[in-house]
Design a protein around this nucleic acid. Structure first.
Length: 209
DNA sequence: GGCCAGGACACCA
DNA sequence: TGGTGTCATGGC
């Protein structure tokens, strides 16, 4: 099988976006009310289905702790209990604490101040935190703050393999380049396309059962 | 009862 | 760099 040329690949990416958008319409991502809630969701959803994450978020909200202050003041065991349904609850509780500590130390506890910094520098700072990898960082940048970073997850890798958009093993940024070079630099399109790819992945998975 | 989910990291060769 | 183990709940 011949590899796609760059031009063909970019055209394919655009065509796939148009096709999925036309077929399934708006996806209404990310389901959260504030940037901080997006950040919490981004950490909780690591390798976890969203329904399990929703339970955890509902528990946090019901306890009145779905906020920077709430996470900060919760004792670790209590935080673990509230997010238990999202799986890996010990790790994730620590990761939430780590993020809040970072925000407090570096940006005086202000998410707004954090996002006033240069975006590449912020991405580097997020990646340096324990528990924030590239997908979580880009989810935060794109969905919490509307910055143009295409999110690559397991579904996106499968999508690329399925449509032969990438050859062999590539690292995270290689996948990102496939989409960011093929699409207009549009936050709206990045958000929608990623959500559509997840929908594509779920439908494919369910069809295979 | 096994497999998988909107990952990240430590450890090893 | 690449491969593997670990973390854990809940739906199907």
């Amino acid at each position: 099988m011949k590899p796609l040329t760059i031009k063909t690949r970019e055209a394919t990416v655009r065509a796939m976006y148009r096709k999925l958008a036309r077929a399934w319409g708006r996806q209404h991502w990310w389901p959260a009310e504030t940037p901080f809630e997006v950040i919490v969701g981004a950490i909780l959803t690591q390798n976890t289905s969203w329904t399990n994450v929703e339970r955890a978020i509902t528990s946090l909200r019901a306890a009145g702790k779905l906020s920077l202050e709430g996470i900060r003041e919760l004792p670790l065991p209590k935080l673990q209990r509230l997010i238990r349904s999202s799986g890996y609850f010990r790790q994730k509780a620590q990761r939430l604490k780590t993020f809040v500590a970072f925000l407090d130390a570096r940006y005086a506890g202000s998410p707004e101040r954090m996002f006033a910094t240069s975006t590449e520098q912020l991405r580097t700072e997020l990646l340096a935190l324990n528990g924030i990898g590239p997908e979580t960082a880009d989810s935060i940048l794109l969905y919490a703050y509307g910055l143009p970073y295409f999110v690559i997850d397991a579904y996106t890798r499968r999508f690329c393999a399925h449509h032969r958009l990438i050859r062999g093993r590539r690292e995270y940024d290689g996948y990102r380049a496939v989409f960011e070079s093929g699409l207009p630099r549009s936050v709206k399109i990045y958000k929608e396309f990623h959500a559509l790819i997840v929908e594509w992945g779920k439908r494919n998975r369910d069809a295979g059962r």
